[in-house]
Every structure is written in C-alpha cells, then in structure tokens.
C-alpha cells in the first residue's frame, strides 16, 4: 500500500512548511531577518509502463505510460533577501544597509561572519562591536573625548573630538557582497557564514556599484509579510489535513484484509 507512505511524506512536508512559517512569525521583530520559504520536489517515480515504449509492432508509442509517484520531499529552504523597511531609532550606532551588502564581523575564533543587523555598540575600549561583543572586522575605534559621531552614506566614520574644530575621520566601514547571498549559511544571532554556494565575500565601499548605502540611526526591520505567512500556514494546514484523509482512506481500504 504505497498510498500510506506517500500521504505520510506529504504530512511530513507540510509539517516542515508550518515550522518555517512559525520561525518566520517568531522572528517578525528580529532586526534584518529575511523570510524563508520551502521548496518542495517530487520524489522518484516507478515506471510501471515506460512512456514512449512501443505499444505494437507498427511502432505506435505509448503516449503517457504509467509513472507512479512516491511523494514529496523538502528540497531547499531559500532565503528571500528583499530589503526590509527601515525604522528610526535615534541611536548613533544603529546602522541600516539600504541596498545590497553585509557587515563583516570577526568571530572570537577569528573567522569572519556576515550580518545585516547593524545595531552596534561601543565596548570599554571604544571599539564598534555587536551585542555579543564581537568587533566589526574593520576595527573602528571611537576615541575618548568624542562628543559626536557621524557615519555617512559611504560608511566613513567622522567624530567630533572636543576642542578640535574639524571632524576627524577614524575609519571606513566596508560592506561585503556575495554572488549568491541566498546560499549563505545562517548561524543564528543574525549572522551568516560564506559557503561554496554563496561564493567568496567581496568587499566594497558602501554606496558604490552593487553595494547599499549606510543609514545612521536606523535599523532594518525583518521582511516578514504577515499576510503571506498566515496564508501559507492556512494552506499548509489544509494540505496536511488532506494528506491525513488519504492515510485514513488507505487504512480503510486495508481494513477488510486485516
């Protein structure tokens, strides 16, 4: 009885679908979270009668054949890297990227990680760090005695040091882009690492071709659209129920032979 197996695979696939919706909705207010969606693929086929075999001596071909499917599987969960809306916070170290590109963070292991969550803070040494205390890889240090910090669209960090007339440039924030950002590996904590699929990170100046600009005092909201999520949750639940009906029917068909 293949129907039992096939329908149970359908139920499992729809369960993953609901889990993805659950994660998207749970991260609705997560800074720079990008929504995920499931890609389903059909499983292998059993050729009961192969299409294009000849049905007679005269060379008449079987037009459709009989291919029995075996169900469904989750082939991929893709990141939909659309721009999220920008939200004003008024904090000088909240940076949003408008356009493409990621900030590069140095992990404690020394490896780079990439994020679009630009809610930075200063540590005791005046260095620009994430909420976990990991520094921005360009190592921007705001000197003591700074009364004001301005980060412009192209990522230059200008500080007003008390007693000096001119603003001083203390560093340049860089952005990193990937050929296929949808293939970045999510690490949690709003961070990603590069994979073979994403390609190498290529650094660039914000505002340059292919790189977004930096907006100081803003954070990028998640790009979750609640309507889409609720709709796909409803669809997934109904598909789940329909698959369960198939399981039930298969069970009832088996019943007399028990």
């Amino acid at each position: 009885m293949n129907a039992l197996e096939i329908a149970s695979r359908g139920m499992m696939a729809q369960q993953v679908n609901v889990e993805i919706v659950a994660n998207n909705l749970a991260n609705m207010n997560t800074t720079a979270y990008v929504r995920r969606s499931a890609e389903f693929q059909d499983l292998v086929y059993n050729n009961i009668s192969r299409p294009d075999t000849s049905g007679s001596k005269a060379g008449a071909l079987v037009p459709g054949g009989i291919q029995a499917g075996h169900g469904v599987r989750v082939a991929g969960i893709t990141l939909n890297n659309e721009q999220g809306s920008l939200k004003a916070t008024g904090n000088p170290f909240d940076l949003a990227v408008q356009g493409g590109g990621y900030f590069e963070i140095s992990l404690p292991s020394g490896d780079p990680a990439y994020t679009r969550d630009g809610t930075f803070q200063l540590n005791a040494a005046g260095e620009l760090v994430t909420h976990d205390g990991y520094p921005l890889s360009q190592g921007i240090v705001v000197p003591a005695g700074t009364s004001d910090v301005t980060i412009n669209l192209t990522g230059e960090v200008w500080v007003k040091i008390a007693g000096q007339v001119d603003l001083a440039n203390v560093g340049q924030i860089q952005l990193f882009s990937f050929i296929n950002p949808a293939a970045l590996e999510a690490q949690g904590n709003n961070m990603f690492t590069a994979t073979t699929g994403s390609g190498e990170a290529s650094p660039g100046v914000p505002g340059g071709a292919g790189y977004g600009s930096i907006q100081q005092g803003y954070v990028e909201s998640s790009n979750i659209n609640p309507i889409r999520e609720v709709a796909s949750m409803v669809a997934a639940q109904r598909a789940y129920e329909m698959n369960s009906k198939v399981v039930k029917a298969a069970d009832e068909m088996l019943a007399p032979s028990k």
Partner: peptide
Amino acid sequence: FHDLLYQNLRRVGSTSSNAGTVVPSGVQL
C-alpha cells in the same frame, strides 16, 4: 532580537553530485 540556531537538514553549499554541482540553498530549519 536575534534568530536562534538552525538545524541543517541538507547543508547549504554541499555538492549534490560528483560533477561538482552545489546545493544552492540547502534546508536550514
């Protein structure tokens, strides 16, 4: 807020055949 960890059901960037084709997005739950 930060996202929590991910379960790798099918690792992104792994090769999907001996011809060197790469899984473009994987299954990260």
